[in-house]
Simulated assay, not measured.
Amino acid sequence: MRALLFCLALSMLGGCAHADKGPGSLPYTYWRLGFLAPDYMEVWVETADVEDIRGQRFFKMGGGTVSVHLPNDGSGNATGWRETWGKGRYVNGADLPKRIYVRWQSLAEPQTYRVIVDIPERARQLMSERLDPPCQASEYREAMAIGLAPGGVVKGWVTSTCGKLIEVFQAQAEIEPKGPYEGLSEGEYYFLSEQAKTYIEQHGIPYGSWQ
Rank of each mutant, 00 (worst) to 15 (best):
Q136S: 15
I146R: 01
L4M: 13
I116Y: 06
V158T: 03
Q56M: 12
M41P: 01
E167C: 12
E139M: 12
E182M: 04
Y190A: 14
P71Y: 00
L107V: 09
G76M: 10
D118P: 10
M1V: 09
D20L: 10
P23V: 11
L8M: 09
L5K: 13
E201Q: 10
Q111P: 14
M1G: 07
Q211T: 13
G80R: 06
P27R: 04
T198N: 13
A9N: 06
A149D: 08
K178Q: 10
S25L: 06
G14I: 11
S75T: 04
R99I: 02
V158R: 07
Q211N: 15
L33A: 06
S75L: 00
M144R: 01
Y40T: 14
S185F: 02
G74P: 15
G93H: 01
G187P: 13
V168A: 02
D20V: 05
P134V: 03
S11N: 05
N72D: 10
P71I: 00
S185C: 14
E186I: 00
E167G: 13
E182L: 10
C162M: 04
L165W: 00
L33P: 09
W31I: 09
E167K: 12
S185A: 14
T112D: 10
L184Y: 00
A78E: 03
K98W: 00
K60V: 15
A123V: 07
L148T: 08
G14Q: 07
R141Y: 03
G62A: 07
E174L: 01
G34T: 08
F169G: 14
T161G: 15
L13M: 09
L10M: 12
A3P: 06
G93D: 11
R32M: 09
L184D: 01
I146L: 10
K164S: 02
V43C: 05
G62I: 09
L107K: 15
E83P: 10
A108K: 04
Y28S: 02
P110K: 02
V68G: 03
E194L: 04
Y113A: 13
G156F: 11
A108I: 02
G63N: 06
F191Y: 08
T47P: 07
G22R: 08
P133I: 07
D95I: 07
G147F: 08
L184G: 09
L8N: 08
E109N: 10
K60R: 15
L192N: 03
K87M: 08
V153E: 14
P38Y: 03
T198W: 00
R122M: 12
R54Q: 08
R114V: 06
G156C: 13
F191I: 10
L131V: 05
K197A: 12
Q136T: 15
R130L: 13
S193C: 01
V50N: 01
